[in-house]
Design a protein around this nucleic acid. Structure first.
Ligand SMILES: [Zn+2]
Length: 420
DNA sequence: CGTGTTTGACCTGCGC
DNA sequence: GCGCAGGTCAAACACG
């Protein structure tokens, strides 16, 4: 029983990883798309893109109903009860424990009444003594808040377009970096705890490092859903990974790094200090920073332990993903650039502005992929096949060598001394 | 006038 | 306690 449980968890992790990889591809494609558009007007209609069928689900009458939090997809049923007055000072639901499939999710309603100001620490409750000693009960969400997902992408623009709306609330000079670091906060809903830091890599100025933190507490447009679910999946992957098998392997204090080999956009789980961070690399030109401390690299510690996985490439999983990617590339008129590493010196110049309908197409495709029952069914079939056949090693070397350059869309940031 | 950015001050944790 | 570094606040400002 235990072994099977662990095995299933490993499979789930793998599937999640692949899902994350796919999501990252979507993000990459969309960012390429928006790069091509580079017209800010095409990005304004976040809420109205994909007017086919998704608007009746999420944004009913423009009112942001706090439906649920994006988190990694598997059977995240949308329970939209509890109206939960989403007015000004809602503290009703903070980033409660999203249905993470750890083994110990039995805490259920861990949120008793105790309306102390801990929940919405973001709004100015500075009057009260913030950071009261919280119990371990909220450790899940605390960890969730602490977990960070860093995305490295090549971008000329000072900020990558991930579909969300951000407000800058700070900028500091990092210590070992001539480029400043900007702090953003999600403004799509009041009290959304999601923050991100944007910093340009010191070695390679064309690489933009975006670090996300937190979970959205509001529905997202499909354009934002790609990146958000990707980062959420990555964070969940990190947490579950470091929680399940980390007992002996990954000490939080022990600098452990993991290269996830399932995709070429290397996901690097770094459980080093203070924040557990997973780094999704979209650059494919690994700067030496990435490998500077190979203290302990080992492939996927939280996958099923050395269980015989007889490497069946005929598993439907790669076909699913490649098919999806093929559809993606066919949709958007793009194709995944295979070799970009020659361009790390001279990043590609922005293309001609494309008609704005392409953004809609990509967003619709994103919505279709993320919400398509076929995709879900295919995923379920893949999982079932893996479970049944017991063969899970989907080395779907998806070539994700796209760059994420794009234009500064809604908010212009002009304070980066890129020339320095 | 509402919204978002700028930017110096402020806060907090940490090492000495 | 002090200094440093990361992170945040908020008044002032810019912009539509
Ligand atoms: Zn948000």
């Amino acid at each position: 029983m235990n072994a099977e449980n662990q095995k299933l968890r490993g499979m789930l992790n793998q599937v999640t990883n692949n899902y994350s990889s796919l999501q990252m591809h979507l993000v990459t494609l969309m960012q390429q798309q928006s790069q091509q558009n580079r017209g800010a007007e095409s990005l304004q209609e976040h809420g109205t893109v994909g007017g086919k069928s998704d608007e009746k689900k999420h944004e009913v009458a423009g009112a942001v109903v706090p439906r649920q939090f994006i988190d990694l997809g598997p059977t995240a049923t949308a329970d939209t009860d509890e109206p939960s007055q989403s007015s000004s000072e809602e503290r009703t639901r903070d980033l409660s424990g999203s249905p993470q499939n750890h083994q110990e999710n039995g805490k259920g309603a861990g949120r008793e009444e105790s309306p102390e100001s801990e929940t919405q620490g973001w709004v100015q409750n500075k009057a009260s003594k913030l950071s009261p000693p919280k119990t371990i009960d909220q450790s899940a969400e605390a960890t969730m808040r602490k977990a960070r997902v860093s995305v490295r992408a090549r971008s000329e623009a000072p900020m990558i377009t991930d579909g969300c709306q951000w407000r800058k609330y700070g900028q500091k000079m990092a210590k070992g970096n001539p480029c400043p670091r900007a702090y953003y906060r999600c403004t799509m809903a009041v009290g959304c705890p999601v923050r991100k830091q944007v910093q340009r890599c010191a070695e390679d100025r064309t690489i933009l490092i975006t670090t996300y933190e937190g979970t959205h507490n509001h529905p997202l447009p499909p354009a934002a859903m790609a990146m958000a679910s990707t980062t959420s999946a990555a964070a969940n992957m990190l947490l579950s990974g470091s929680m399940s098998s980390a007992d002996g392997l990954m000490n939080p204090n022990f600098l452990a790094r993991t290269i996830l080999p399932c995709s070429s956009n290397m996901a690097t789980i770094s459980a080093s200090a203070p924040f557990p961070t997973v780094t999704l690399d979209l650059t494919h030109t690994p700067s030496p920073l990435q490998f500077q401390r190979p203290t302990s690299q080992f492939p996927v510690p939280f996958a099923a332990p050395a269980q015989s996985f007889p490497s069946a490439q005929t598993s439907p999983l790669p076909q699913v993903f490649s098919q999806a990617l093929y559809n993606q590339s066919k949709f958007s008129g793009l194709q995944l650039s295979q070799d970009m590493e020659s361009a790390h010196q001279a990043p590609p110049i922005l293309q001609q502005p494309q008609p704005a309908s392409l953004a809609d197409t990509v967003s619709a495709a994103t919505a279709a992929i993320t919400a398509d029952p076929n995709f879900t069914a295919a995923l379920a079939a893949a999982i079932t096949s893996i479970i049944g056949g017991g063969s899970a090693h989907p080395n779907t070397t998806i070539n994700s060598t796209a760059n994420a350059t794009n234009s500064s869309n809604t908010n212009k940031i002009s304070s980066f001394p890129t020339g320095n």
